[in-house]
């Protein structure tokens, strides 16, 4: 599903190159649940951003579903966002001015999903995540765990093939974090959704089936588990 070939990323500052990623080559297959680990500043988030096409690599090529997407136009990128990729953020990033329902609805609006279809999908998601009662609340009226649930529901609404999650439990207490991780595991097992998450926690990484460890921009270890 994702193929990275010799990805490099550096920031040039006064003639000095600061490498964030060096010679990263890896492949993520459909149905995998990958955790990217490593110390702060290792380049985990940058790698995830490149996978999500939020950043472009300095060198190297990136294939998404066999298609070269290294340098993709704005429109094409947006098409991918609409149909194939779902994002989950550490700080949830719900739109504060929208209710829970509206937040989940937003991606469907951009996809021009019919109103009936929207309603049934959102109802389904609310039901599945057990947040039906909260649908008319605004994000700031929810706990962190609830907000992240909404964030995931939103990411799933467009029925993406892959979810990219940047420390999805970083701001949560451990009980809530466990819930979220269980949810990811379930989505991966039962719905076959590919998941790539960046995490600090060994425990969270344990929910997946593969761990990529990065140090100083280089892949140190690529471990299959479970």
């Amino acid at each position: 599903m994702i193929k990275l070939e010799n990805i490099e990323k550096y920031y040039a500052n006064k003639g000095v190159k600061n490498y964030v990623l060096r010679h990263v080559t890896t492949q993520i297959n459909k149905g995998e649940f990958v955790s990217i680990m490593g110390p702060s500043g290792a380049g985990k988030s940058t790698l995830l951003n490149i996978m999500g096409m939020l950043e472009e690599p300095t060198y190297g090529s990136y294939f998404f579903n066999e298609e070269d997407v290294t340098h993709l136009g704005e429109r094409k990128k947006i098409e991918l966002y609409r149909n194939h990729i779902g994002f989950v953020f550490q700080a949830y990033h719900l739109i504060d001015e929208m209710t829970v329902y509206e937040n989940i609805e937003a991606p469907l609006l951009y996809k021009n999903v019919s109103s009936g279809e929207r309603k049934s999908r959102i109802a389904d998601l609310l039901d599945r995540f057990n947040i039906v009662a909260k649908k008319d609340l605004f994000p700031n009226q929810l706990s962190g765990g609830q907000q992240q649930l909404v964030g995931i529901a939103r990411a799933l609404a467009a029925q993406p093939a892959i979810i990219l999650a940047d420390e999805p439990t970083g701001n949560l207490q451990s009980v809530q974090a466990e819930e979220i991780m269980e949810l990811f595991k379930k989505l991966n097992r039962e719905d076959g959704i590919t998941i790539v998450q960046v995490t600090h926690s060994e425990k969270n990484a344990g929910y997946g089936n593969r761990i990529i460890t990065i140090e100083d921009g280089v892949i140190k270890e690529d471990l299959k588990i479970g």
């Binding site: 999500g52 939020l54 098409e79 719900l94 739109i95 504060d96 001015e97 991606p107 951009y110």
Partner: peptide
């Protein structure tokens, strides 16, 4: 933030 989120959800700049 709204703009950032909307962009990764797939919205065109014109929109």
């Amino acid at each position: 933030k709204e703009v950032g989120v909307k962009k990764v959800l797939g919205v065109y700049k014109q929109q």
